[in-house]
Design a protein around this nucleic acid. Structure first.
Lengths: 116, 116
DNA sequence: TAGCGGGTTGGAGCAGCTCCAAGTCAACAG
DNA sequence: CTGTTGACTTGGAGCTGCTCCAACCCGCTA
């Protein structure tokens, strides 16, 4: 699969995919005879997971750690699971922030007087 | 109030407050005879609102627009309300993303096998 | 009178993209 | 066969939104 199709499939931009590859966050992606990337369905799965992680604010540093563990295979499974658990907990905290912010906004909007 | 106390009160860092001031996102903050900022309770309210907006991902550009409207007084109220409404809607979308991500993580975690 | 704990400024550095220039190659039009 | 289009390649510059740093000033206590 070419990069632009892959981008649509995983939700990241083509530039971001290239950037993640440069940063060592992707498995080795083979090139065709024309030098173009040949991105597999497995790669798409990985990219999609990365998409979710960064979309919900995981720092690159942690994504790199996660990648390194994935490359290590079974040995890294426990820590990978822990990272995902931690991130899941982080999402809970973020949701609480969103909720609190909605309250703040509601109060502020009300203070401007109701809808015109 | 001095800047470090203000930082604690509003949730932003002292550096961020200075940065926001440089960027024109704060009302004019007077200096004492020693050159130090004298931040008022009203300023804290404003900073706290900015804290919530940026904490939930509003871009600086929009925060600047919001600030400009606030400086314009009553004339800008309708648009300010609209900006907050739009942001509130945005929060809904973000919550949906968080929810979706939690599902994805749960599936991924399960695929590693249950807790050791 | 020296040192400490705050504050001030301008500017550099960082994360995480995002965009651009310059080049290559395949495919198709004329 | 040549020319144009379009999708890809790379390296590197630019952008956002902080975050940190150096160099300095000021008031205070020992």
């Amino acid at each position: 699969m070419k990069i632009s199709k892959a981008a649509k499939a995983c939700g990241l931009s083509a530039d971001t995919i290239r950037f993640y590859e440069k940063s060592g966050m992707l498995p080795d992606i083979p090139r065709g005879p024309d030098g173009h990337r040949d991105i597999s369905a497995k790669d798409i799965d990985w990219l999609t997971l990365l998409y979710w992680l960064r979309e919900t604010g995981m720092p690159l540093k942690q994504m790199k750690r996660f990648t390194a563990l994935a490359k290590a295979g079974d040995a890294g499974v426990a820590e990978r699971r822990q990272i995902l658990r931690d991130h899941s907990a982080e999402l809970g905290r973020r949701r609480a922030l969103l909720d609190r912010c909605e309250e703040v906004l509601a109060i502020k909007i009300a203070s401007y007087g109701e809808a015109p």
